Simulated assay, not measured.
Amino acid sequence: MDALAPSAQTGRPHEIVWPARQTLPLVFASPHSGSDYSPEFLAASCLDPLSLRQSEDSFVNEIFGCAPEMGAPLIHALFPRAFVDPNREPYELDPAVFKDKLPPYANTRSPRVAAGLGTIARVVASGANIYKDKLTLAEGLERIRSCYWPYHESLRMLVQQTKEQFGCCILIDCHSMPSASKLGQGRGAVNRTAFVLGDCHGSSCAAVVTDTVERILHRKGYQVARNSPYAGGFVTRHYGKPETGIHSLQIEINRQIYMDETRMERRPALRALAQDMRDVVAALGSLQQGRLRPNGR
């Protein structure tokens, strides 16, 4: 069987960085910044490690690393997105990935599965196939059991504890996007948009949350788009229920700002970007909590 999970090496599938004391009604999550590739997974892939990493949101957990010292917890996956994707439904499974017939509860027809980017991805972000051979269903289900569910159990705990303490919670789901993305004009064009804010077209968080982040980023000179082409993934849709006091916003950052996308290496600008995120955290933390609680209480 393939490796159970990178947790077999690290002892855990994800990490929570706790504040000394939580003073802000915020939770930050980075589901795609994991880079713990097991030897077994690498051996099963027809891609080299650098190609596999094209699906990562590399260093995003570092960009938002200020959150714990400012009073908000940060959770980030240690397993890589190419191994299992926690920003999908638990069983968005691609029949082309598996040797076995899939169970009836599997969602095999989602747009993500059609693109090869289901819970167990068939391709990396570039479109290259990941595997030499098909997986057994048992392998896929073990990855979901050992990596996906523990991540969401911890995320759910953080969101619930935050809501219980403050009466509301803002979950920021942190991601990155390649510069040659869908926002570029024409084939191979470079995306000049620095940030895309996804609030599921206004349904996953109160408008003041998205407006606040957009205002801070504009003030710093960044070009910002809303909901196109990234309106929010499973985490944003699943957790964001403003009517209950839980708000979720997805933030996508253009990788060209802070990293060499070919070598997958940090650029010096990462430090300045991380400093700018301090102002985003501070602005969100200063929002009047009464505006975020159910019925404005």
Results as ranks from 00 to 15, higher is better:
D260Y: 13
L158A: 09
S33F: 03
A82S: 11
G232P: 04
F83H: 01
N61P: 00
I216Y: 02
E261S: 06
F234W: 14
Y239L: 10
R88W: 09
E243K: 15
C205P: 00
A128K: 14
Q256V: 06
Y222F: 15
A114E: 11
K101N: 10
A189L: 05
T210S: 14
N87C: 05
M259E: 04
A282I: 04
H14M: 05
R237G: 10
A269C: 10
G188C: 05
T119C: 04
S146I: 03
R145G: 06
R156K: 15
R143N: 02
R145D: 08
L74I: 07
P73H: 07
R237K: 15
P95Q: 13
R81G: 00
Y258Q: 00
P242R: 11
R215I: 05
A189D: 10
V208T: 07
K241C: 11
S7H: 07
A82I: 03
W18G: 04
Y230G: 03
S126M: 12
D57P: 06
S7N: 04
E40P: 01
Q185T: 15
S7Q: 05
G140T: 02
A231G: 06
P90E: 12
E142T: 09
Q250R: 08
R143T: 00
P294F: 10
S55K: 02
A125Y: 06
Q250K: 08
A207K: 06
F166W: 14
A231L: 09
N254K: 07
L249D: 00
P13W: 06
T262Q: 14
T236I: 12
A121S: 13
Q185E: 14
L197R: 06
C205S: 08
A121R: 05
I251M: 13
H175I: 11
H32K: 11
T212K: 02
V196S: 00
N87Y: 04
S203D: 09
Y105P: 01
P103N: 10
L217I: 01
A77Q: 09
R266F: 05
T119F: 11
I246E: 00
L93V: 03
R12E: 05
K220V: 03
E261Y: 06
Q223N: 12
L171M: 14
E62S: 04
G240K: 08
G127C: 11
G296Y: 03
G71F: 07
G202V: 09
P95D: 12
H238E: 11
R192Q: 12
L158M: 10
N61S: 12
R112Q: 06
R192T: 13
Q54E: 08
S203L: 14
A67S: 12
A138G: 03
S7C: 04
D211A: 15
Q256L: 08
P68V: 07
V124S: 01
G65F: 03
G285P: 01
C147N: 08
E265C: 12
T236H: 11
I170F: 05
Y258V: 01
V281G: 00
R266I: 09
P31K: 08
P111K: 12
F195S: 00
Y148C: 03
P294V: 06
D85W: 11
K132I: 14
L249E: 00
R12H: 13
D100R: 12
S248K: 06
D173G: 09
Q289H: 08
Q289P: 02
L197K: 06
W18K: 15
F41Y: 11
R226V: 07
P268E: 06
P19S: 13
E142K: 11
R237P: 07
